[in-house]
């Protein structure tokens, strides 16, 4: 009975409690934090990087960085916010480092069977793995053409539906800077999409 109660208590440990344990020297508690957050971090990293090896590298960096900086977590804001901020910033740094490694060009993403705009109109079903993969490739190729800042803002605002205030908190930028970046991001994205269409028309 005693053991069961302890087990239950262990299961409902909050993130902040786990952080306290890790900082106090119980390193194994960090594994629970990893297990809790890894699906979200993987999902997030896949929005920024197309290669699975790049995704794994970034996620690994995020968690090791978190472990190293855990001592600086003050506990004034929820751990999730602090962690997500660190994750987004790590992705941004990694994007900047990989800036010169853009694998696909616009011409690679032109389809023989249907027009690019037609493809945008049809989101593949979950069962259609190949279609889904192609759709993700398409998104990555368009977003590869925009700047890293624009990509971060587009992903946070348009994909994750975060507010300007939230983006400012995550990125550490001021709210006015986020608004400016969001406007620029939309312009860059529009230009990138138009480049696709122009290329398609020429062929």
């Amino acid at each position: 009975m005693q053991a069961t109660e302890t087990d239950i208590r262990t299961d409902v440990r909050t993130d902040e409690e786990l952080v306290e344990f890790v900082v106090g020297g119980e390193v194994d508690c960090f594994e629970e934090l990893i297990t809790r957050y890894q699906p979200r971090v993987f999902g997030m990293a896949r929005k920024y990087f197309r290669n699975e090896s790049d995704v794994e590298d970034v996620v690994q960096t995020i968690f090791t960085k978190t472990f190293q900086k855990l001592g600086s977590y003050k506990g004034t804001a929820p751990f999730e916010h602090w962690f997500m901020r660190l994750s987004v910033n790590t992705c941004y740094d990694a994007l900047r480092r990989r800036r010169n490694r853009r694998e696909h060009t616009i011409s690679d993403m032109l389809f023989e069977d249907e027009s690019w705009q037609d493809r945008l109109g049809n989101i593949p079903s979950d069962d259609d793995k190949e279609g889904m993969e192609q759709a993700r490739e398409l998104v990555h190729t368009v977003l590869d053409q925009v700047s890293d800042r624009a990509r971060i803002v587009l992903t946070l605002q348009e994909l994750e539906g975060r507010s300007v205030k939230e983006i400012a908190e995550i990125t550490g930028w001021s709210e006015s800077l986020v608004k400016v970046q969001a406007f620029r991001a939309r312009t860059e994205m529009r230009a990138s999409v138009e480049r696709f269409l122009m290329k398609e028309k020429r062929l």
Partner: peptide
Amino acid sequence: SADEQFLKFFRNLPWKEHVP
């Protein structure tokens, strides 16, 4: 417009959270 369509596509695309 193509950019709006792209954003709609981008938002509705499911992103897998599979962990190795």
